[in-house]
Each structure stands twice: as structure tokens, then as C-alpha cells.
Design a protein around this nucleic acid. Structure first.
Length: 317
DNA sequence: CTTATTTGACCATA
DNA sequence: TATGGTCAAATAAG
């Protein structure tokens, strides 16, 4: 119990700030998608650059804020009594369901064919992936599935917007714990929210601990010492489209995506960013070696050779 | 009671 | 066929 320092005020404030920034960056990302209309050679470019800059600003600000949590200590008081800064991964509500798959026995409950699984996979949906310490994004999600994934020890959870049926919102996301760094999640968003977010996250998505239960039974046994964290920083790993190399079906989308990558590159961003390429696996693999501040774990692995995203504590002091 | 989560079955795609 | 995304009955939670 020597690890949790009672910094509450600034931490809480920072937490809110970061949350807002994350959201803002999310909006900027969405805006980016809306700009896919190639109206004019010049006009569109500037718009793209603008959005790219917005995104970059958000990302960098988040990085700084996040890092400051560790390095900075002169953030000045102004603290109220300790609020709920605890996010410890202590949950204690999950019981049962010990073994994942206990199939093959004597159950034959399927009388005839259900109507399950009759869905249309959306191949051409906009998809982007981020890595974050929290899965909270101020949207109301409802879990509709969980799957064991081949090369992961952690299951993948599937969420859809709570107001899917009320407002026809088609946003979904997938959340999966990163094996090299169980404090973080890979969150893949599919589609944008079309619902009114007036009601933000009602009552379900409020505590981070709640999410532990979402991510499977073994999700909460992770001993976090540095968990007093804000846990809100995230960064874009990459956008993906259905089939990158061979996808003859959607040229439009493919075009857009490549375009997208392009302008992000042109934004003076080192080739390290979008990297991620098709193998996110590679990206995360490095994170394990850095247990120092996992805040940068991902970053370092992404931008290991870039000075653009070089974080030095000295610049923070 | 209503609403959310769990969980295996079902199905599309590689 | 293997893998993973979704559905929906059963169950839990509020």
C-alpha cells in the first residue's frame, strides 16, 4: 500500500480533461470520415490538413497530460477532499462461469433451427482502432457477445449502441485486453453513432471497474499498482478497411482509406504512426518490455524511431 | 416488473 | 473447415 498516492483533486480534474479530449479527438476522427468527399484538389486538402492537425493536437495533448501524471508533481493543490479516485480492479461481483467452453455433452436444446446468426456482416463500415486504458468513451454500450480469440488469452467483447433499436444507431465496438499489457485494451469501433448523445452514458458505464466484468472472468485478477490512474489516454492505431490488399469490391472505400492514410502521412507524421499495418500484433509486442509507464508503452512501440513523439520527462518539468 | 449480461448456437467469411 | 461476429434464450441485476 505504498504505491497509491492520494492525489485526488488534480487527478480527478485531469481525468475529466482527458476524457473530454478523448471525446474531442473521437469527434475529429469522425469528422475526418465525413471529409471523404473529394470535392476539390485544394479545398479538400486544407480541410484534411486541418482535421489532421486537430487530431494530432488531441493526441499529443493527451500524451502530455498522461505523462504529466507520472512526472509532474507541481500541479498545485486546489484539492477537495478525496473523491472517488479509486478505480482499483477490485470487483467482486463476478462469480460463476468458471470454464469458458464446456460444450459437447448431452445438451441438445436446439429443437429446430433458431433464427440466430442470420445477420449481414457489414464489410464496408468505417472502422478504426485505438488503444486505451479505459473502455469508457461516454457512450452507452450494451454487450451482446464475447468470444475466445485464437491467439489471445483474453476474450473479445462485443458491444453495440444501447439505442440501436430506439434510434437505429449502428455503432458497435469490440474490446479486447492486450496480453502484453493487460492494463490496456484494444478497442475497435465500427460505425459511428447516429443517435443523440444527449443522454451520454446513462447509468451503466460509469465506473471503470464495471468494465472488468465485461471482459471476462479473468479480467479482474490483474494486480494493478499504478491503477489510481486516470486511464483515459488513447491513441489511434490505425484504420482498417475490409480487405486491404485484395478488395476489388469497394474501390470507393479503399480509395478513401488510402487517401486518408496519405494525408495523415503528409501531416509530417513519421511513418511510424500508421504503421500498425495489418499486424497489430507486432505493434503491441514491444509493450511488454516497458512496464515503466505503460502510458507510453504503446507509444514507444509505435514511434520508437521518431523524435516527433519523443516524450521526455524533462520537458514536463 | 424491465433492462442488461451471459453464453452457446448459428452463420458469414477466409 | 476454422475463425470470429451475431443472435437470442436463459439468467442476473435493478
Amino acid at each position: 500500500m505504498s504505491i497509491l498516492f492520494p492525489r485526488s483533486s488534480s487527478a480527478t480534474k485531469r481525468k475529466r480533461v482527458i476524457r473530454e479530449l478523448v471525446q474531442g479527438r473521437d469527434y475529429a476522427t469522425q469528422l475526418k470520415f465525413l471529409l471523404q468527399k473529394p470535392i476539390g484538389p485544394d479545398g479538400s486538402v486544407s480541410a484534411k490538413e486541418l482535421v489532421a492537425n486537430v487530431l494530432r493536437s488531441f493526441t499529443e495533448t493527451l500524451s502530455v497530460l498522461t505523462s504529466s501524471e507520472v512526472a509532474i508533481s507541481g500541479d498545485h493543490h486546489r484539492d477537495e477532499v478525496a473523491q472517488n479516485l479509486v478505480i482499483s480492479g477490485e470487483d467482486a461481483s463476478q462469480v460463476e462461469s468458471i470454464d469458458p467452453r464446456s460444450e459437447g455433452s448431452t445438451e441438445s436444446k436446439k429443437g429446430s433451427k433458431d433464427r440466430r446468426g442470420s445477420y449481414k456482416r457489414r464489410k464496408t463500415e468505417q472502422t478504426w482502432t485505438i488503444v486505451a486504458q479505459t473502455t469508457d468513451d461516454n457512450h452507452a454500450w450494451r454487450k451482446y457477445g464475447q468470444k475466445e480469440i485464437l491467439n489471445s488469452q483474453f476474450p473479445r467483447s462485443y458491444f453495440r449502441c444501447t439505442r440501436k433499436f430506439e434510434q437505429g444507431c449502428r455503432a458497435t465496438k469490440q474490446v479486447q485486453r492486450i496480453q502484453e499489457n493487460p492494463d490496456m485494451y484494444t478497442i475497435t469501433y465500427i460505425g459511428f453513432h447516429t443517435c443523440k448523445d444527449t443522454l451520454k452514458a446513462p447509468q451503466m458505464v460509469t465506473h471503470s471497474e464495471t468494465w472488468d466484468s465485461f471482459l471476462g472472468p479473468d479480467a479482474n485478477d490483474v494486480p494493478n499498482e499504478h491503477d489510481s490512474t486516470i486511464g483515459s489516454q488513447s491513441l489511434i492505431v490505425k484504420q482498417e478497411y475490409p480487405n486491404d490488399e485484395t478488395d476489388p469490391s469497394d474501390l470507393t472505400d479503399a480509395n478513401f482509406w488510402s487517401d486518408f492514410k496519405d494525408f495523415e502521412l503528409s501531416n509530417d507524421k513519421p511513418a511510424g504512426l500508421k504503421i500498425a499495418s495489418e499486424n497489430a500484433d507486432t505493434v503491441y509486442s514491444c509493450t511488454g518490455s516497458r512496464s515503466l509507464d505503460m502510458d507510453f508503452g504503446i507509444f514507444s512501440s509505435h514511434f520508437c524511431s521518431t523524435e516527433d513523439f519523443h516524450f521526455d520527462e524533462s520537458q514536463l518539468l
